[in-house]
Nucleic acid binder design. Sequence first.
DNA 1: ACCTACCGGGG
DNA 2: GTGTACGGTAGGT
Length: 824
Amino acid sequence: MAETVQFYPLDANYKIQDGKAVINLFGRASDGSQIIVVDGNFEPYFYVIPKDGVDISEKLEKVRIEGNNEVYSVARTAPVIKKFLGKEVFAIKVYTNIPSAVPAIKDAVKEWGSISSMHEYDVPFVRRYLIDRNATPLVLHQITGEFISQKSKVPVFRAEKIEQSAETLHSPKILAFDIETYSPFDMAIDPERNPIIMLSFYGENFRKVFVWKKFKTGIGHVEFIEDESQLIKKFKETIESYKPDILTGYFSDGFDLPYLKTRAEKLNIRLDIGLDNSEMRLKSKMETSVSISGIAHLDIFKFIKKVIGSSLETYSYDLDTVASQLLGEKKHEVSLAELSAAWDSKNDELEKFCEYCLHDSYLTYNLAVKMLPTIIEMVKIVNLPVYDINRMGFSQLVEWYTMKQAYLFNEIAPNKPSYSEVQQRRLNTYQGAFVYEPKPGLYKDIAVFDFRSLYPTILGSHNIGPDTINCVCCEGTSQIIDDGSEKYWFCSKKRGFIPTLIEDLISRRIRIKEMVKTEKADSGRHAGEKHAFLDARQNSLKLLANSFYGYLGFFGARWYSIECARSITAWGRSYIHKVIDSAQKEGFMVIYSDTDSVFLTLDGKTKEDALDLIGSINKELPGLMELEYEGFYPAGIFVSAKLGPFGAKKKYAMISEKGDLKIKGFETVRRNWSFIAKDVQENVIGIILRENDTQKALAYAKEVINSLRSKKVPVEKVIIHTQLQKEIVDYANKGPHVAVAQRLKNKGRSIGPGTMIRYIVTQGDDIIRNRARLPEEVKEREYDAEYYINHQVIPTVERIFNVLGYRKEDLLETKEQTKLEGFF
DNA sequence: ACCTACCGGGG
DNA sequence: GTGTACGGTAGGT
């Protein structure tokens, strides 16, 4: 009895049932209930391209491998006509009994002389399904089939047919959470030893804090429980009753969920929160991640850092900084160092920590809501679940977008490079973008031009791709680009695969930008929300299009082509030179240029003259290429920029007409730096950005340096923290922290991997290791002021001051001491 | 100049 | 997962 359900998939996996793979799609039906849609009608396969004129179908069909309690066999084969890098090929589609048979069989037949190549044997089965069945997470699907009885937390529907509709799940149920752990400071975080003491949740109209010590409070959403076991059970129960589509945390891949898992194992609690009753799983050793069947686990920290990190003008990705930037809200100010003491003896102080914990969940929730449009659009464009999108870098996003498109274009995907190919590719470097080194200094009346999406538009306009490069049909007729050592041309008869994708992405983006314009004009009730989604969509399309160039030159790429990457930068240099030449011919002074932008001073000319120049250049540009007027700045300061294969990093500061300061190009300070270094950088940035007072910032930095020299800085501020990663004896290079660890061990302290070592660099002529002392061993005024000035304070602020036109020497000069109170 | 070890986020 | 997958810096040699 067939019926239909309307269903938004969120997550997917597969299981083997009766020797067959069954896809499980987890998600929400349009009536709001959670269901699992199972589909057993999809077969695993890969492609074999035989050598010319050989038919090996029958031979392939007989392949059968008996492994340890598993049988891998070829179920059937089908001859297909496909395209491979633009050329038509005959291929055999080899279907296997189960997904894991694919790599096994591929390995078993790889030595056959009759095989030319094999492809797509490493596409995960679930991704294969989403691509081939045109199933897109977060998009509504109409499923025909029937509900079946199967042991599960939620109803199970067996699909016979699955069809995508146009609607999107714009408001998935999001639940944010955060834990606080018992953790004496200056000790490594240790889930083996220290319990979780608080747990908070935040969702729409939902807030909760669990804590297992009692104190007086009037806050209703605090719930007291017995112990840590109860707390972990509450974690499970809350998720099971709230039924979120998305569970989100801040660095929850790296901290909260692994910590919960370790504690749950210690306490013998199964964290079986998966909709299929499976436990949450910890994956990969390098970069940890945690998945839950049926619930999209979103580590919003990871997403923000990866996807919008470069466009965020922040010096740190901690929750406080990111929330301030994106939400205009900060974390609660409490001293976490005091939490353990409060837990042990001062329970009446716990209330503020509960509020703190809840507020972190609140901020995390709002960050997730804020990023949701971008996440949804990425999911829809790349066609993978939230969980995967969250954890993929740009090259992966490009690759999987391209994999999906390859299927639609009947293209067979090239293989990933072998280890030795990767080594080869890594050696291939090439000339990057053109950077016009500015003369450091202050300039006035600056106009900035830049090419709209320079590399993608070059790629599209010149038809650059692995399938169009140096084609026989256009040799001698197509325009040649010379990268300085090699000459390349691209087919002018047939559109390439990647240029087609790029042009599609760019034109879709242009259409959406038009819609954004008209949306702005009419202001309906949901105009704001609609605008956010359109804007996220155009931005996602832009990010993806911009990543193709880097992808072509990325050593791990399937569609790798260093020649294409070279051609793109060569064209880029040629176009930017044209702009510079035209501007100079018209009498503008070019002060700086980097990759796709040109900064020039008006020198008595008007902004209209600058706009006219752009107009005349645009008339000459091919295809989608366009030079834009980025803006006008009354003043700015420039320093030189470093060259790199993927474009130079910008280092400059400018003041906009509104008075906003734009600073680019300085790095962050980490925990293995002294407090004094962190303090100085934070305060300098604060003074410059908030008070717009560079003089004051300089005076402050000098004051700190002078205080170090005169030893007025207390020793606590010059302690450096470094964590020991392995046993002392295993160190080939013994750095300062290892030397100090050795001394601690000699004193009889237990020292091992994970121990946090604190040390101070003292005066003397020896190498740093031999001058590193335990803080207890160091009296006031014994630290090496010059070390802290030159290796800690100066490096953190030098770049910033360079950008503002000052030198290291300006910071170091001792005369005219400024009086600034209140920094210590 | 090259190599080794460390950080990030979280408490 | 039909997996192989950081990137930048300081200190030591």
